[in-house]
Structure formats: structure tokens, C-alpha cells
């Protein structure tokens, strides 16, 4: 083998080695870039997560100075009627736009009122507002706000009368809801009238409280309306007989 060919072979070996080294360096650089990119992306994601969670938490916390109606009991979202020493408690979760709630009120509402009058049951009204639509101009919220205005002005028995009136005159689901003027009229019939009542209904003065009430119902584990609890037990038979039986059983 001549010296010339040996040198040629050595040059080739060196070139091949350099190419391999360059490829390894490039691969290492690519890996580094991938790792650095991954870490940067992960840190960025965590930062965005924390910021968004903080901002949204701030947005959902009800401000401490949000207007709340007078006359509530318990957690501030309940209106209670009936004697405090009544042996049985009935909790009602309803949306003023909910057709099944109207069906309950039409069939069993008078039985509920009779139980209250007789001193057998204390009824706790939990308003909900999840059937707002553009078509009904957020009727669920307007109706519950109006009910809170009535209780604020004239007490919980007026709330009960207003509640009965709104279910007796419930607007069709998918319709345009009752107008604010109609709500003011029913408020007057229930015993709450005056300029303050009108403006409080028009201005949705307890709008933020309504949102809180809806959240509270969700926290109470209520996922459908109407929900009726007799001494905390969910009632499945919502007929007058079903309610009467459950109340009698609760008295035992």
C-alpha cells in the first residue's frame, strides 16, 4: 500500500469521524432545545393556570357589599314561613319559570300551605334561577329578584303569597316571561307596594344575591327542580298524598 492511499484512507476516517461528531452535536442541541422548549412551555402553562384560576375566583366571589334582602334565614338564601316549633321542615327548591314546579304548586301547593297554617310544617323556600333566556329577558332572575324585594319589604308571608301568585300565573316556557310591570302588580297584590318596590324590581337590586342563591342551591346538591325535602329527605312522590304521608312519617 502506497503512502498516498494510506493518507487518503486516514483523511476519510477523519472526515467520517467529524461528520459523526457533528451529527451527535446537532442531535444533542436538538434534544436540549426540546427540553428547554418543554420546560418553558410547562412553566408558561402553570403561570397561565394560576393567573386564570385567581382571576376567575375573584370574578365569582360575591362582593361583601352586595345587596341582600331582609328576612332571610339560615345561609341567607332561604325564606321561611310557618311556626318555628313546627315538628316538620319542608324545603322547596323552585325556579319561577319551571313548568314542573308549576305542576307541583297546582297539585300540592294548597296542601303545603295547609300544613303551614296548621302549624305542622315549617316551609323553607329556596329560590333558583337557571331558566334565563334571551327570549324571556332573564325571567327566572327577574322573578326571584322581585320575590326577594317582596320579602324585603313585606316579610316572608308576603313572599309566600307572591310565590303562589307567580306560579298560578306562570308564563309559558319559551315565551317572553312576565314584564317588570306585571311583577310590580303581583307584588302589590302580595302586599308589597310603593315606589321603592317598583324601582327595586326594575333595577334588579338583588341581582347579585340571585346569582348567590343559584350557587347555594348547587352547593346544596340540588340538580333539578322542583326538589322537595321533608326533614332533609328527598320526596319522590310529589302528589298531595305523597307529601302528607311523608310529613306524617316524619312526625313519628
Amino acid at each position: 500500500m502506497s503512502g498516498e492511499t494510506k493518507r487518503e484512507a486516514a483523511r476519510q476516517r477523519i472526515a467520517a469521524k467529524r461528520a459523526a461528531e457533528a451529527a451527535a452535536a446537532a442531535a444533542a442541541a436538538r434534544r436540549r432545545r426540546t427540553v428547554v422548549g418543554g420546560v418553558v412551555a410547562a412553566v408558561l402553562l402553570v403561570v397561565v393556570l394560576v393567573v386564570v384560576v385567581a382571576v376567575q375566583t375573584h370574578r365569582t366571589s360575591t362582593s361583601a357589599d352586595a345587596a341582600a334582602p331582609a328576612g332571610t334565614s339560615g345561609n341567607g338564601y332561604v325564606f321561611t314561613v310557618g311556626r318555628a316549633d313546627a315538628p316538620v321542615t319542608v324545603d322547596l327548591y323552585e325556579d319561577f319559570q319551571c313548568p314542573n314546579c308549576k305542576a307541583l304548586e297546582d297539585s300540592t301547593g294548597s296542601t303545603i300551605d295547609d300544613l303551614v297554617t296548621a302549624g305542622t310544617a315549617q316551609v323553607r323556600y329556596h329560590g333558583m334561577a337557571f331558566l334565563d333566556t334571551d327570549a324571556n329577558d332573564d325571567y327566572s332572575t327577574r322573578a326571584l329578584n322581585a320575590a326577594a324585594v317582596v320579602a324585603d319589604t313585606a316579610g316572608t308571608e308576603a313572599y309566600q303569597r307572591f310565590h303562589d301568585l307567580l306560579f298560578a300565573n306562570q308564563p309559558a316556557e319559551g315565551g317572553s316571561g312576565l314584564t317588570d310591570d306585571q311583577l310590580v302588580d303581583y307584588a302589590a297584590q302580595a302586599g308589597a307596594s310603593g315606589q321603592t318596590v317598583t324601582t327595586d324590581i326594575d333595577d334588579l337590586v338583588f341581582g347579585e344575591w340571585v346569582t348567590g342563591a343559584e350557587d347555594q342551591a348547587s352547593k346544596d346538591g340540588v340538580t333539578g327542580t322542583p326538589t322537595v325535602l321533608v326533614d332533609g329527605e328527598k320526596l319522590t312522590d310529589l302528589s298531595p298524598a305523597g307529601l302528607t304521608a311523608a310529613v306524617s312519617a316524619a312526625q313519628q
Binding site: V52, Q56, T57, R59, T60, T211, E214, D215, S218, K219, G221, T223
Partner: peptide, 16 residues
């Protein structure tokens, strides 16, 4: 899901 955080909370809570 971002514009109405209260609704998002209720949606998650509803799964119980």
C-alpha cells in the same frame, strides 16, 4: 367556558 366562571363552577359542581 371562560366568560361565565360562575356557570362553569355550577357545571362542575353538578357532577357531584
Amino acid at each position: 367556558k371562560l366568560p361565565d366562571p360562575a356557570a362553569a363552577e355550577r357545571a362542575v359542581r353538578a357532577y357531584r
